[in-house]
Structures are given as C-alpha cells and as structure tokens.
Design a protein around this nucleic acid. Structure first.
Length: 400
RNA sequence: UCCCCGGUAGCUCAGCUGGUAGAGCGGGUGGCUGUUAACCACUAGGUCGGCGGUUCGAGUCCGUCCCGGGGAGCCA
C-alpha cells in the first residue's frame, strides 16, 4: 500500500528534527502522508541515478525533474533577470520587435516561412508562388534578428534593447546551434564601435557577477558534476577582463603561430572555429574581442572604415563556446549603405524603410547580438546547447 | 550538406578472428537495515535500429536507409 517511489507527488506533514544521518542537517519525522499522484515504478523513466543527456532529451517533459535541469532552469532564469536589470539600470528601453517579418533576406541565414496557404494547392502566377493571395499579401517569415527593427527605435529613443526568440532554418547539427533560440540585442544611438565593445564587456561582467552571487549553489553543483573548475573560470572572466585585437592583428598572430591549422590563415579569409579557439584558449587564455573585419565577410549594414577595406565589426569569443556576441557600428551614411547593399546583391527596394532611417536625421549608432543559450552554456558548463533550453528545436526535432 | 563514431534488456554498457546473447543499475518477490544513488538472496525482461544480401549458419561480414553523438560550414 505504501510503495512511494521515485516520481510520486506527495504531501507530508510531520516534525522537522535534527538528523543523525550524514550529509543532511535536518529530517522530517512524518506523521501524515498523502499521495497526490502515483508514478508506476515499472514505467516511470527517471531513476535515482545518472542518465545520459541524450536519453533525457527524449523525455524533455520529465527532465526538468532532474537536479541538473532544475539547476539549469534556475540559472537561465537568473541570467535573464540579470540582463534586464543591467539594461534597465542604464536606462535602456526594452523594445518588443516582431516575430513575423516581411523582409525575406536579412542576410543572417535561412528563414522559416509563415503562410496560411493550403500547401496542397498553393496559388501560382507565371510559375511562381503568388504571395499576394497569402495572409499578409506578401511573403512572410519568422525573424532571424530584431536588429533592423530595433535600430528604428534607437534612432528615435536613444538606448534600447530587444530580447526575444529568433529562428534559423539552417540544417546545422552542432552542439551550439538551435533552430529556435533567444537573442539579446542592444542598440545605442550616438555610439561607436568602442562604446559597443565596452557595453558588451560590461554586460558580460555584470551577469557573471550576478549569477556567481545568486546561483552559487547551482554553479558549485555544475562545477562538481558537469565541469570541474567552472566557478574559477567564471570568476576569472568576471574580474580579469577581455583581450581586444583587430582582425589584422589576429591574422598576424595566427600566421606567426607554430600550430598547424586545417584551414589556411590569410588576410581576407574568415577566421575559422579552430583559429578562434586557438586565440581564446591558448594565446590569450581569456575572452577575446576581434574588431574591424574585411567588409567582404561581413553583412552590408556594418560601417565602412576609412581604409575602404574593413568594417567596424566586433566578435566576442569565449573559451569552449567560440562566438557568443557579434555586433558592429552601423553604416549611418545613406549613400554608402546603398552602395554596400548593391555590392552584396540585395535589392534596396526591400529595405526602403531601413534606408529612410539614414535619409532622415541619421546618427551614428551601434549594437550587438548576444546568443542567450550560448551564455547559459558558458555559465553552466553544459556541453550541448540542446540542454540549456527547455524544449530544444533542431532539424528534425519539434516534439513536445 | 560534408567528414568521423555509434545504434544489443526500462537505463548505462560488454559481446575476440561469424556458431541463434551477458553484466551493473532499475523492476518484481523475500530478507536485513537510522536509511542517504544502502545491503543479501531469488526472479522476470531482448524480433541485437529498419530493409536487402553473402553464408550450412550473422549481433558479428557487405549494401542501403533511418536515428543519435562529435567535428566542419553557417552563425548567436
């Protein structure tokens, strides 16, 4: 009758008394026990032992009951609170940018289509899909970034940020990519690249100190079971600051390195994952900010430097994860932006409103995007990004 | 999409050069116990990812597909 096992929901009343047992200070001397919900031990999948993360992903509705996922949820919550606190304390306005967007080529990867068409009978005109008959009267997608929209508010209100879900339909299978993830995107008017880099460092430092103080127990749990030395690493990053170098300097350092790379290092080519890790984990042994990349490997909206070859871009790399922040000072000159769009093969008509932000009362401004799940990964030491979001969406996986 | 590794009991895995499967944990039963992811005994669980092929015979070899993991690209 009283086979209360793992997974049961119970109500216990009794007296809290000092415990003679090891590893606990108090225990409850039960006087009354009520079972709200039984859990058949023969079929209940969670056991009082360690399960693999792969297995737990197949029972995503039950995994928050494990101590690891409970700790992740608490740290994730705390980081979210810390981010809002950081911006609110500095007078940034939280802007809710749209989830559904009409621009279909923001240059940040493949997009998910949004439609109410009966997929078995899609209206066509001259062989092409006729989106004028669709719900919005034009093609629509899930957003890949709130940046373009949040720029409009920065140029009206000063310092703003958005923090919401974003979507990428890339067929990527790695431990640091999701099809649906959350992104923090501040945007500041009258700010240049230096101010942008400074904000990124301040933000990261602030949230690390915040969780080190408020989630101490959970972080120590991760340090013990997930990644040894985690707390020390976080404390170092929060106190010792970051390294900042230009893309050109990075190429020079990498060229002079004795290490053999799979991909060649040369000015103009993108810095590969292996190069990023080398700089972060071996050369500097701390987070690195790389700035001023060649314009060819960066999006059209980044401000062109006077040299005409590089743009005012910044990437913030952290050990183990790689790129956690990507941002730039934006191109605020109408003519230059128009030219860069054409160079990139984009149709300026699709961005008419974005161009108008430069046509009327343009101002220098800058911002960046912080991948929230990558931050949670970095803070918790959890290996796979699928384990730091409640219900991960990846190619071939939308169960739950 | 490309490269590498894997898919054997509910979970975590073992199974040498081909001869129709094992352990620990979990479950059940009994015992023991101020227990802590306890201990002892007994016991029930498997179309060895799917399909096709080679062979007298395949978990083991070959082909193919599906799924998972690691890495790359893309990025956050």
């Amino acid at each position: 009758m009283l086979r209360v096992g793992t997974g049961c929901a119970v109500k216990v009343e009794g007296t809290l008394v000092p415990s003679p047992a090891k590893g606990q200070e108090v225990e409850l001397r039960a006087e009354r026990l009520e079972v709200f919900g039984w859990a058949d031990p023969e079929t209940y999948p969670l056991q009082k032992k360690r399960h693999s993360f792969e297995f737990l992903r197949t029972i995503a509705h039950l995994r928050p009951r494990t101590n690891t996922f409970g700790a992740v949820a608490r740290v994730r919550n705390s980081l979210s609170y810390a981010i809002h606190t950081f911006f609110q304390d500095r007078g940034f306005l939280y802007i809710h940018t749209p989830i559904i967007t009409g621009s279909d080529c923001e240059g940040a990867g493949q997009m998910f289509k949004v439609t109410t068409f009966d997929l078995a009978h899609v209206p066509k005109k001259d062989g092409e899909v006729d989106f004028s008959q669709d719900f919005f009267g034009q093609a629509a997608n899930l957003t890949v970034s709130g940046q373009l929209e949040v720029e409009a508010f920065a140029l009206a209100l000063g310092d703003v940020y958005t923090f919401g879900p974003t979507f990428r339909a890339e067929d990527s299978h790695t431990s640091r990519h999701l099809s649906e993830f959350w992104m923090v995107e501040p945007e500041m008017a009258f700010c240049d690249l230096d101010g942008n880099v400074e904000l990124a460092q301040d933000l990261l430092t602030f949230v690390l100190k915040w969780v080190l103080e408020r989630c101490r127990e959970d972080l120590e749990f991760f340090d013990k079971w997930i990644r040894q030395g985690l707390v020390q690493t976080l404390e170092d990053v929060a106190s010792k600051g970051f390294e900042r170098i230009s893309y050109s300097d990075a190429i020079e350092i990498l060229s002079g390195s004795s290490k053999k790379f799979e991909f060649p290092v040369q000015w103009g080519a993108d810095i590969q994952s292996e190069h990023e890790r080398h700089l972060c984990e071996e050369v500097f042994k701390r987070p690195v900010v790389i700035t001023d990349y060649p314009k060819e490997i960066k999006p059209f909206y980044m401000k062109l430097n006077p040299d005409g070859k590089t743009v005012r871009a910044m990437d913030l790399l952290v050990p183990r994860i790689g790129e956690i922040i990507g941002g730039s000072e934006r191109e605020d000159r109408y003519d230059v932006l128009l030219e860069r769009m054409k160079e990139s093969g984009l149709n300026p008509d699709d961005y008419w409103w974005y161009l108008e932000l430069r046509k009327y009362g343009s101002a220098p401004h800058a911002g960046f995007g912080l991948g929230f799940e990558r931050l949670v990964q970095f803070v918790t030491g959890i290996q796979n990004i699928r384990d730091v979001i409640p219900f991960p969406r990846t190619p071939g996986n939308v169960a739950f």
